[in-house]
């Protein structure tokens, strides 16, 4: 004899979980929508000379702060549930946000949120402090930014910078490709320290070398034609 209550109980559990997922999904959707507008504004950097970037960065900062509010909402709900059970729902959008933050900071925005460390980018701790969320929690089961998410965001930023190197030249800025070249190579050296397994991080970080190459090609073209500005030659 099969007890049909077993299936009724399962249905109850499925319904409960659906409610949780719906609630989280709704917040993540908002985060995603705002994320797209952040990225749209940020992409204006590709067609804006460095000295006129300020208004663009101000607009981006506004959007990022709006996204930060969504993250706060997300955190409040997600903290009531096991973190890794639902992490997949928002991981992608959080990565996109962190990538935007990093790019904005690299371009000169969000400077007051950069930590005292001498890195040229925001560390995972800086990002956590800015978004007001913990990072890399290993014991406590609560909402946080994971190392993998942070690293994936850095990779996305590197890809965007490779594109920016090309577009800077088009805008007549020959200094920025050098800076990008140095920075991207530094990060690439960092990523080479990691022992990556066959996972998403491995797949994505394999792409960094193509970004590095793209930037190096630009640097090469510039130096071949003696277009490299003095004082900013690539290391």
């Amino acid at each position: 004899m099969i007890d049909q209550r077993i299936f009724e109980n399962l249905q109850t559990k499925i319904d409960e979980e659906t409610t949780v997922r719906d609630e989280l999904h709704e917040i993540v959707q908002k985060l995603a929508r705002r994320g797209r507008s952040t990225q749209a504004i940020l992409s204006r950097a590709h067609s804006t000379p460095a000295d006129q970037l300020k208004p663009v960065l101000d607009d981006v900062t506004k959007e990022i702060l709006a996204q930060k509010e969504e993250v706060t909402r997300l955190k409040a709900v997600a903290d009531q549930h096991p973190f890794y059970k639902y992490n997949g729902l928002w991981s992608r959008e959080l990565q996109n946000l962190v990538a935007s933050i990093e790019l904005c900071a690299w371009l000169g925005g969000l400077q007051e949120h950069k930590g005292p460390s001498s890195t040229s980018f925001m560390t995972i701790e800086d990002v956590g402090k800015f978004l007001d969320i913990p990072v890399n929690l290993k014991e406590q089961d609560a909402f946080h930014l994971t190392i993998e998410e942070y690293l994936l965001a850095l990779i996305a930023m590197v890809e965007e910078l490779a594109r920016l190197a090309v577009n800077s030249v088009t805008l007549g800025d020959y200094t920025r490709p050098m800076q990008i070249g140095n920075f991207v190579k530094e990060l690439f050296a960092g990523f080479q320290l990691l022992n990556l397994k066959n996972d998403i991080l491995r797949k994505r970080s394999d792409g960094i070398k193509y970004s590095v190459k793209k930037v190096e090609d630009v640097v090469y073209d510039l130096s071949l034609r003696n277009l490299v500005p003095k004082g900013s030659s690539s290391a």
Binding site: A50, G108, S117, T119, A189, G190, L193, L194, N195
Partner: peptide, 26 residues
């Protein structure tokens, strides 16, 4: 330009912090 300050800092302490950060990640 803020970028240049960043670059200047990176030049003073070449790549060290990045490597130690990534060692930690590793």
């Amino acid at each position: 330009n803020p970028k240049d300050t960043i670059m200047a800092e990176a030049e003073i302490e070449p790549a060290r912090p990045i490597l130690s950060i990534f060692e930690n990640f590793r």
